[in-house]
Amino acid sequence: MSALLEIDKLSLEFRTRSGIVRALENVSLQLPEGGSLGLVGESGSGKSVLSFAVLGIQDAAATITGGTIRFAGTDLLADGGSAMKTMRGRELAMIFQNPRVALNPIRQVGRQIEDVLLRHTALRGAAARARAIECLADVRIPDPERRYSAYPFELSGGMCQRVMIAIALACKPRLLIADEPTTGLDVTTQAAIMRLIRDLGREKGMATLLITHDLGLARDFCDKLAVMHAGHIVEVGPTETLFRTPAHPYTAQLVRATPVGQERLENLASIPGNLPDLRRGDLPPCRFSERCELRSPACATPLPNLVVSPGHLVGCHHPQARSSP
């Protein structure tokens, strides 16, 4: 089965006044049609940069220095990203944290869905309006006819995020990129939104890329996880495998730092040190090595890409066979 989204050895840099930030290096990922992948990592790991690169939204300072992004077989980076522009919003859609900011505050939410339909489909007039109402109903917004005319400020945060999802799904995309879609929402609302995204993905056979700092959330809603650290993907694998037998020391520590399932405060791990400064010219091949207890001289040599088990890959010279308890 060929992947819907295939990122191969992608590298991206930001040129800033204080130096070149090597934000992504040799990042490779595959997401099959209808699959769900969680991209997890702490702030500064590069997970949002990666999703923006896929969508082709990035500031002028960013340069892709290598690699390819293929979507349904099409090279998104070819011809200066022209393929990306036609696909974005139609086949590829995105939702962000803080939906209130992403929505136009002075336009009725139903109109905002229609705007997308007018841009990407042949629907016009009453048909577009009917489809917009259908989109609101799809995301389980009660009384969609009435809510069509609501302004964002009249809706709760959870309702605004549903509207964002409705906009994203209006053109029946094949891939939804959800970047921290529930950050800032209450946990009960978060649960409802995440279940909605999951159920809609299943109903419509849509692939989902969930970007989150919350390992527990990724565990609940993704088939596969990719763990990012300082612009590298350090480990990829089936979700439960990564939780039970993480191979990369960073993944192992991240799992142990998550309070979910922990019984004692003492057992909660913290990860010493900070992310390396990505402007440094002397970044080691393993960007975690300076924080790593397992560091050895081998870590100064180019990273291997080890297959731990089918579908479970790790970039580390000292992969752990078994996770510590």
Partner: peptide
């Protein structure tokens, strides 16, 4: 409902708050 809503697989969906 709070516990069922927590990420990480606690509780069950029947406990979630309804619409």
């Amino acid at each position: 409902a709070l516990i069922a809503s927590l990420p990480g697989g606690h509780g069950n969906d029947a406990d979630l708050l309804v619409g």
